[in-house]
Amino acid sequence: ELSQEQQNLLTYILDAYNKHRIPQDMAKKLLQEQFSTEENFLLLIEMATTHVQVLVEFTKKIPGFLSLDHEDQIALLKGSAVEAMFLRSAQVFTKKMPHGHSEVLEERIRKSGISEEFITPMFNFYKSIGELQMRQEEHALLTAITILSPDRPYVKDQRAVERLQEPVLDVLRRFCKTQHPHKPQQFARLLGRLTELRTLNHHHAEMLESWRTS
């Protein structure tokens, strides 16, 4: 079971996660309007920018984050922004959406000039997240854990970051045990997705390069 302190940490992170999300008008725009390849590209850039702004607001609410060295805060956010973005997007694709919505979104991403070799692993990742049937709490905690990765480039005080990440990991581990009693591997699988995210992050950097070129 979670201690009162752990329950508080969970509630705090979950509330922040639910509160800071992409505005609905922007999400609607993605579904309703028809755009050319170039407009798709610009819309995805706008979405990505908003994603980062929302992510920063969420991160500020993670207990202890603002007490970290300012440059370390930036290093953590820079290192994790893409991974957090993929996690959030995975949720969009695994949620039950009105008929046809996920197809429209997928079509838009496929028609934004991104090469197929980057698209396929991304949708594979979304599928693998879907298979885990994660609860909102798991999404919120996993996002916080991703952000609080002490091994990101340019982080100076790794120990301080570890001290923030460890309690969140512990809450996630306990939460998985109580919420998925018949799936003892749930916690390990969630951590496995973080490894997959690192690969996507790496691909993403290559993808941006190919996008810039084209």
Binding site: L42, T49, V52, V56, K61, I74, L77
Partner: peptide, 21 residues
């Protein structure tokens, strides 16, 4: 426009901004 800003600029600006309640 936001599309001209790099990731680090967006993060720095957002970190400096006030939290919207």
């Amino acid at each position: 426009p936001a599309s001209n800003l790099g990731l680090e600029d967006i993060i720095r600006k957002a970190l400096m901004g006030n939290v919207e309640e």
